[in-house]
Every structure is written in C-alpha cells, then in structure tokens.
C-alpha cells in the first residue's frame, strides 16, 4: 500500500494524523513483528473502549500556534505519555483535555463526551493533577479531601475510609489535620494526587507527575499508576522526564511546535526515528531534531517521504 493511502486510511478512521513513517518497507517488516503494536491496530480500540479522543484540536495564543490540529486517541487502561521540548504545546493540550482552557477549534471527547458541550459530565470522569500544587492553604489535608469529595459527589458514608486510605498510601496520614500551608512542595503534590484519585475517576490527566516527589514517592506513584491502569483507569501524562515516560507509559506521543510528530510504543518510535538501539532519550532527540530541521511539518493527511 502506498504510504499516503496508508496514512489516509488511518486518518479517516479517526486516528493519529501526524504519524510520520519514514520507510514503508520497515513499516511492513514491523507489522509482522510481534513487538510492533501500533496504537490503531489494537483490539481494544473499539469506539466504546476509547477514553480520550482529540479531533483537530487547535489552540492559538495571538499569533503563536500552540497546538495545531491534534488528532489522537487513548484506549482504556492505557498510560499515555505526552512528551516534547519546552513550549511544544504539552501543557496547553493537557489544559484543553482537563477543560481548563477552550480550544479555538476541534474537539476533546472524554468517554465520548464532548468537554466543551458537557463540561460538568466530562469533568466528573477526570482526576486532574497539575504541575504546580496550588491549594487552599488554610484548609487541612483532610478538609481539602472532603472539599473535593463533596465537589465530585463522593458519598459521606464512604468518604472517611477512602480518604484515610488515600492519606495512608501517600504517607500523609500523620499530617491529615495540619493546615496545608505547613506542607512541603512534595506533600502538597501528593495531596493533590490523593484528591484526584479519591472519586475513582476513569481518566487521570497529569501534568509533570513527579515534580517535587522524593525517590520513594516517585516509586510509589509509579506503582499506583500502573495498578490503576491495570484496573482500567486511563492516564494521559505530560512529562519532560523521559525515563518516567519510558518506564511507565504504554504509548508515547511526541509533540513539537504544536504538532504531533510521532506516536506509538517505544518500539514504534524507535522505528520512526530509525534508531534500532538506544533509549527514549535518543529517539526523542533524533525525532525532534529532525523535525526542527525539516523545512515544514507534515500537514493533516500529508506524509514525509
């Protein structure tokens, strides 16, 4: 199949618009490889299994095109890592997914709910963890959990057990009745995570998950995210820390200058980057360097030869 047709077919199926396949022959070779599982070929990609989907998502800040016609989807139980250089459009994308900013055009579907049309219903499905832990400093940790539990409709009868369980998991139980203003940066980050998970969201959106956490905290969070993903929770994680993306994520998307330049498993990305060996860092640097050197970025439906 000619590469353009191949791409067109995927795009029409509502899949990633910007997957850059450099060598059709290699692609064909890979398809036969058991390791190669492009995101759109998986069995769990039936529409009812798709938890996050963006269609032509675009955001401008004045003359700056922060996110340019982003098309992707994430199936249930997947930990999707979103990486890219500084100013690539990661945080803007995350904020559009969480309903914090509205796109200029395009849609965000969370479990088939358009976040622009049904923001409350869609947000009810989400747990959002921002990169900076700004909280209500004059509440205690437990009070903050109660506040979020009430906002998300967690029943009062189950709240205390769930909250204490969360605080225990995040090593905050001894601090539950202290004002948040006394917490360290890492403790605040852990409290936000506990609050985001408390209402059993189906989707968790995370911006830089490990900032401020100590090594034990990072290990615990990784373990918890994996456990939740295995139980069917879908993660969309934006990060700069490539080792975390490599260790934790099932699928990775690379964004640069607002465009999705590559998407797939680590192995897929290696193929796209023509890097037979090396870790995500090499793949990332190769892909982003190539893209920044190329005269133009591939448009929707367009494929670099």
């Amino acid at each position: 199949m000619p590469i353009n047709e191949h791409f067109e077919e995927n795009f029409n199926a509502g899949l990633s618009s910007a997957i850059v396949f450099k060598q059709p022959d290699k692609l064909n070779d890979c398809r036969s490889s058991p390791k190669f599982k492009p995101i759109y070929f998986e069995d769990n990609n039936s529409p009812e299994n798709i938890m996050i989907e963006t269609k032509n998502l675009t955001k401008r800040y004045g003359s700056l095109l922060a996110v340019d016609r982003l098309n992707l989807f994430v199936p249930k139980g997947t930990i999707f890592g979103f990486i890219g250089p500084n100013g690539a459009g990661k945080t803007t994308t995350i904020k559009m997914l969480a309903g914090l900013i509205e796109p200029d055009s395009g849609t965000v579907l969370l479990r088939d709910m358009d976040i622009s049309r049904e923001p409350e219903k869609a947000k009810q499905q989400i747990g959002f963890i921002p990169d900076r832990p700004y909280l209500y400093e004059k509440l205690t940790g437990l009070e903050f959990l109660k506040f979020t539990a009430d906002l998300y409709g967690v029943k009062e009868s189950v709240f205390l057990d769930k909250a204490e369980n969360m605080l225990e998991k995040f090593s905050l139980i001894d601090w539950k009745n202290e004002l948040i203003e006394a917490y360290s940066h890492g403790m605040k980050q852990r409290l936000i995570m506990a609050a985001a998970i408390l209402h059993d969201p189906k989707i968790i959106i995370v911006d830089e998950p490990m900032i401020g956490l100590d090594p034990a905290g990072i290990k615990m969070v990784k373990h918890m995210f994996r456990e939740l993903a295995d139980s069917g929770v879908t993660f969309f994680i934006s990060t700069h820390t490539l080792s975390i993306a490599q260790d934790l994520c099932d699928k990775i998307g690379i964004i640069q200058k607002g465009k999705l330049i590559a998407i797939g498993t680590l192995d897929d990305l290696k193929i796209q980057a023509q890097a037979s060996s090396g870790d995500l860092e090499d793949v990332f640097l190769k892909l982003t360097r190539e893209e920044s050197l190329s005269p133009g970025y591939p448009d929707i439906g367009g494929v670099s030869p």
């Binding site: 205690t140 009070e143 506040f147 009430d150 009062e156 203003e181 006394a182």
Partner: peptide
Amino acid sequence: RKTLRKAKVTKNPRILSFLPTHVQA
C-alpha cells in the same frame, strides 16, 4: 516554622444539609 493548627473533619454541619453537597463544600 509555619503555624500548625489542629482541626478535625467531621460531617458537614446539619444546618447546611438542605444544600447540594458541592454547594456545602
């Protein structure tokens, strides 16, 4: 050292029970 204060979370006050929970929050 920042001021540490003790406070306990109990159930929401009954006086607010006529309100939806998110409003109480």
